[in-house]
C-alpha cells in the first residue's frame, strides 16, 4: 500500500509536474482571492476608511457587546430587503430564460444543420464583451426601440427595466451555456439513441426520456453558473438601469418620505452603502460577507438538488 503510493508519486508525470502547472494559478488564487477574502471577513467587524486604517470595537459606548453591530445595522434599510426580493426574482427568471434558450439552440445546432460551427461562434461572441459596455450599448438600443414603440424608457418603468435587464443578460450568457450543452449533447451515447429509435420512441420521447437525463451534468453546471451570475450581477445593472426608477413615497404624518430604487440589485445596494461615506465601509463589508454566504448557500443547495437527478452512464 505505502509502496505503491510512493512509487506512483515518482513515476507518474501528472503527480510530478502537477504543481508546476497549478502553481501560478494557486498563487494568483491566493493573492487575488483567498487573502482579500480573509481580510474582508475581518474588516466586516471593523470601522475602516482605508484597508490599513481600521479599528475593531467589541464594546460600544453604551457598554453593550458590539462586535456584530455592522451586521445588525447593515440590514436595517428597506432598500436591502427590497433588493433581495428583486434579485431573487431576477435570478429565477434569468435562469429559466437562459437555460431554456441555451438548450434549445444547442439542440438545434447538434442536429447536423449546415453552418452550425459558424452559428456556435456567433452565439458565443456576446459573452466576450464586458458588462459595462454591454449595459451602455443596450441602453441606447432599448432607448431607441422603446421610443419608437411609444413606451416609457427603461429607466422610468420598473417592469420594462426588469425585462430589459433579463434580455441583456440572456443575450450575453446564452452562448456560453450553449457551448456547455453542446458538449453534453455530443456525449450522449449513440447506442442509447439507437436503442430508443428501435424501441419506437418518437423525437419528443427521446428528448425527454433519453437526452435530457443524459445531459443532467451539463444542466447542473449551467444552472449553477446562471443562478450565481444572476445573484452577483453588478456591471450590467449599474450601466443599464443604475437602479432607476425610484419608488417615491411622500412623507405622511407618521413616517418620513421613503425612496426605494426599484431595479437596484443586491451588489449595487452594497456599493451604495459603501458610497455613503467612510462611516459605512464596515457595514458595506458586512453586507458583502452576508451576500457571499447567501450566494454560496443557494449555489450549493442547487448543486445538491440537481446532482441527485444525474444518471450514471
Amino acid at each position: 500500500m505505502e509502496k505503491t503510493k510512493k512509487k506512483s508519486i515518482f513515476s507518474n508525470p501528472m503527480r510530478k509536474w502537477g504543481w508546476f502547472f497549478l502553481g501560478p494559478m494557486a498563487i494568483a488564487f491566493f493573492i487575488g482571492f483567498v487573502w482579500p477574502f480573509i481580510q474582508g471577513i475581518f474588516l466586516s467587524f471593523c470601522d475602516f476608511n482605508t484597508v490599513s486604517d481600521f479599528s475593531i470595537k467589541f464594546i460600544n459606548d453604551k457598554g453593550q457587546f458590539a462586535l456584530f453591530e455592522n451586521y445588525i445595522n447593515s440590514i436595517q434599510s428597506p432598500q436591502i430587503i427590497y433588493s433581495l426580493g428583486f434579485t431573487a426574482l431576477f435570478a429565477v427568471v434569468s435562469v429559466i430564460v437562459i437555460n431554456v434558450f441555451a438548450f434549445a439552440i444547442a439542440y438545434a445546432l447538434t442536429q447536423g444543420i449546415k453552418g452550425s460551427n459558424l452559428f456556435r461562434t456567433i452565439f458565443f461572441m456576446p459573452n466576450l464583451i464586458g458588462g459595462v459596455i454591454l449595459g451602455y450599448a443596450w441602453q441606447m438600443i432599448f432607448g431607441g426601440i422603446l421610443s419608437l414603440l411609444d413606451l416609457p424608457d427603461l429607466r422610468s418603468d420598473t417592469g420594462i427595466g426588469f425585462w430589459c435587464l433579463v434580455i441583456l443578460v440572456a443575450w450575453q450568457q446564452i452562448g456560453y451555456m450553449m457551448i456547455i450543452y453542446i458538449a453534453g449533447l455530443q456525449a450522449v451515447p449513440e447506442d442509447m439513441l439507437e436503442a430508443a429509435k428501435i424501441d419506437g420512441a418518437n423525437k419528443t420521447q427521446t428528448l425527454f426520456r433519453v437526452i435530457i437525463p443524459n445531459v443532467m451534468p451539463s444542466i447542473t453546471i449551467c444552472m449553477f453558473l446562471s443562478l450565481t451570475n444572476g445573484f452577483k450581477l453588478f456591471d450590467q445593472n449599474f450601466a443599464l438601469n443604475s437602479g432607476l426608477p425610484t419608488i417615491i413615497r411622500p412623507a405622511t404624518e407618521t413616517s418620513p418620505a421613503s425612496f426605494i430604487n426599484s431595479t437596484q440589485m443586491l451588489a449595487m445596494t452594497i456599493k451604495a452603502t459603501y458610497d455613503k461615506g467612510s462611516a459605512f465601509h464596515g457595514q458595506a463589508q458586512a453586507q458583502a460577507v452576508m451576500f457571499f454566504i447567501l450566494v454560496a448557500a443557494i449555489g450549493l443547495g442547487q448543486l445538491a438538488i440537481t446532482r441527485k437527478r444525474e444518471v450514471q452512464q
Binding site: S156, P245, T246, D275
Partner: peptide, 30 residues
C-alpha cells in the same frame, strides 16, 4: 449622500419629463 440623492432626483425628473403633471412635479419636490 450625493449619488443616492441625485439618483432619486433623476428618477423623479424622468417621470416629470415623460408627463408634466402636477402629481409628477410633487414627486420631484419630494
Amino acid at each position: 449622500n450625493v449619488d443616492e440623492y441625485r439618483k432619486v432626483l433623476v428618477s423623479a425628473l424622468n417621470a416629470y419629463c415623460a408627463d408634466q403633471s402636477d402629481a409628477n412635479w410633487a414627486a420631484v419636490k419630494t
